[in-house]
Design a protein around this nucleic acid. Structure first.
Length: 283
DNA sequence: CCTAAGATTTCCT
DNA sequence: GGAAATCTTAGGA
């Protein structure tokens, strides 16, 4: 461990441009929604889908994901030669293959910066480096996914600065909303069977992990090269007003408790916690 | 080994 | 607005 040369600033801080907040998070979900009900409802990491074989209600517009194929497709993919066979043979060859093309996509609207060893609210405070938080110390763009309260996940992205990272707290869901709804209902507790509104899908650090099916297996993956999860620039457009507010749920962390290290897009209905007082103080 | 707390969410009053 | 759910991790004995 070494002292950071410069200020251990996160992307959000080094690049004050709202473009940094408009990066979109995408995840190509190769969901295990195989029609097979073969999977017993065991308590595995990845909960099985309960729906027998139906996808989302047919009333929804079809996914457009095939038009958004990423340059980083997963290597394991059936190529042209596979499809070049007679219908009967192909029909049989299809059995057992995965047939979904779901992309789960959202615009990042809320983040928090954790600055590293000096930050009393960070898992890396005091330079603590453990098996769990190793991702915080890896190269910028590395994911740090950890389990919180024994049942939820939080997703961070390592930034410049030793032990510094950015927590993703909320997304505006853009694509794959029905899949997100299903994931949130099956992964989350009860939900009382009520249908979740769009703004309830990703408005919280653990909610967005559920909606994107992010779990511990994503820990220490590289956002820049991974085949299943990545970020891309948001569309050009008017720059949103960014609010800087205190971080959420960090308890007592001395002088760090109230530092304005949480950032969100003002007016977005997809933000998890709105801070009216902080909004009045903005420049 | 044992204990306490946790970058949360959901349900109840 | 308050409390439960639920278990890993960190830190001390």
């Amino acid at each position: 461990m070494r002292k950071p040369a410069g200020p251990p600033l996160s992307w959000a801080l080094t690049d004050p441009s709202p473009a940094a907040f408009l990066l979109q998070l995408l995840r190509r979900a190769r969901q295990k929604q195989r029609l097979a009900e073969a999977e017993p409802p065991d308590t595995a990491r990845m909960p099985p889908s309960k729906k027998p074989c139906s996808g989302p209600p047919a009333t929804l517009s079809p996914q457009r994901s095939i038009y958004f194929l990423s340059p980083r497709e997963p290597p394991a993919r059936l190529g042209p030669e596979f499809f070049n066979q007679p219908a009967v043979a192909l029909a049989q060859a299809f059995l057992g293959q995965l047939a979904d093309h779901t992309e789960l996509r959202g615009r990042i609207v809320e983040t928090e910066a954790y600055l590293g060893p000096d930050d009393e609210a960070a898992h890396s405070r005091g330079g603590r480096q453990t098996a769990r938080n190793r991702g915080m110390f890896m190269k910028p763009g590395t994911l740090y996914v950890y389990i919180i309260y024994g049942m939820y996940f939080c997703m961070n992205v390592s930034s410049q600065g030793d032990g510094a990272c950015v927590l993703l707290r909320a997304l505006e869901p853009l694509e794959g909303l029905e899949s997100m709804r299903q994931l949130r209902s099956s992964l989350g507790k009860g939900t009382s069977g009520r249908t979740l509104k769009d703004r309830q899908l990703c408005s919280g650090p653990s909610k967005l992990c559920q909606a994107l099916a992010i779990d511990k297996s994503f820990d220490q993956r590289d956002l820049a090269t991974d085949g299943a999860v990545w970020m891309e620039p948001g569309p050009p457009g008017p720059e949103p007003t960014v609010v800087a507010a205190a971080r959420v749920g960090i308890g007592q962390a001395g002088e760090w408790t109230h530092k304005a290290l949480r950032f969100y897009v003002q007016g977005s209905p997809f933000v998890s916690v709105v801070d009216r007082a902080a909004e009045r103080v903005q420049p």
